[in-house]
Simulated scan of single mutants.
Amino acid sequence: MAPFQPIVSSPDPIVLVGGGEVLSQDFEAVRPHANRFVAADSGAAAVLAYGHSPEAVIGDFDSLNVATRAALPAETLHHIAEQDSTDFDKCLRNVAAPLILGLGFLGARVDHQLSVFNRLAARPDKRCVLLGRDDVVCLAPPNLTLDLAAGTRVSLFPMAPVAGRSTGLRWPIDGLEFTPDGRVGTSNEATGPVHLETDTPGLLLILPRDALIPLLRAVQSAGCGTWSARA
């Protein structure tokens, strides 16, 4: 069997744009960190509207309108018809990059947002940071050191049973067992720079939007480590 070949393979960060709310300041925020764009289905319309061209559009195309499709070169369209996965997941598994910056995936319908979080947990080998109107979200890597100001909101939400250790949090997580239907760690608070260690993948890290730059620095640092792909 031939080895799997992703649709997009990049040595540089990729901006992945979904069909939810995408603000002009979102593009301004990510432009210093990435200049290659991939769209999940109807996210292509936002990429075009803000003056960029997606190098690939990936999805089942159930929400890609005729005008947007006509404005795109045929070779950029990658139709994946199966309905067993979301467009976000189709993109994650077909984009190989050191970092994926996701726009248009937060703040939409609750079921859509939950499915996005589910896929972050299911593909822990993909380093993906989501940017929304109020928050930035990622799956916590094995080790993470964040340069945060005292008082910064730090929320931790488990998508699976997970334990870890921390320094720099008002309420340390050492010795705690987090589960989706048990203990969660929302609305914790930084007392200064924060260091997190987690034993297994599954912990969502949710920070205020203005923590984007320290989060990007942290997840791209050599010491944060990576999770293996799930079988």
Rank of each mutant, 00 (worst) to 15 (best):
N188V: 02
N143M: 13
A121I: 15
F4P: 03
F178T: 01
N118V: 09
D62C: 03
G18M: 14
G132M: 07
P201T: 14
V66M: 13
S24A: 09
H79N: 15
P13T: 11
R93N: 03
A40C: 11
P13W: 02
Y50H: 13
G185R: 00
R127G: 01
V110F: 13
G20H: 00
L196G: 00
L64E: 02
A96W: 01
Y50D: 05
E75F: 03
T200D: 05
L92E: 04
R209I: 05
I80C: 02
V154G: 00
R230Q: 10
A49H: 14
A44E: 02
C91G: 03
V57L: 01
A222P: 00
R119D: 07
E177T: 12
T167Y: 00
G104S: 02
V184W: 14
C138A: 13
L212C: 12
A222G: 10
R123M: 12
R127K: 14
F157M: 09
C91R: 13
L77V: 08
G132V: 14
A231K: 08
A222H: 06
D111E: 09
R217T: 14
R170Q: 08
D26C: 15
V17H: 04
P208C: 05
H33V: 15
L207P: 00
Y50V: 03
A163N: 11
F178C: 11
G164C: 05
G43N: 12
V95P: 05
Q83M: 09
K90D: 01
L99E: 04
N118G: 15
R183T: 07
A97S: 11
A44K: 00
H79D: 13
R69N: 08
A140N: 04
A81D: 08
P13R: 06
E82V: 04
R133Q: 11
P6G: 04
L156V: 10
I173L: 07
T179S: 03
T86R: 06
F4N: 07
S42N: 15
P73S: 06
A222F: 01
G107H: 03
L196T: 01
A67K: 02
L23N: 02
F61N: 04
A70L: 04
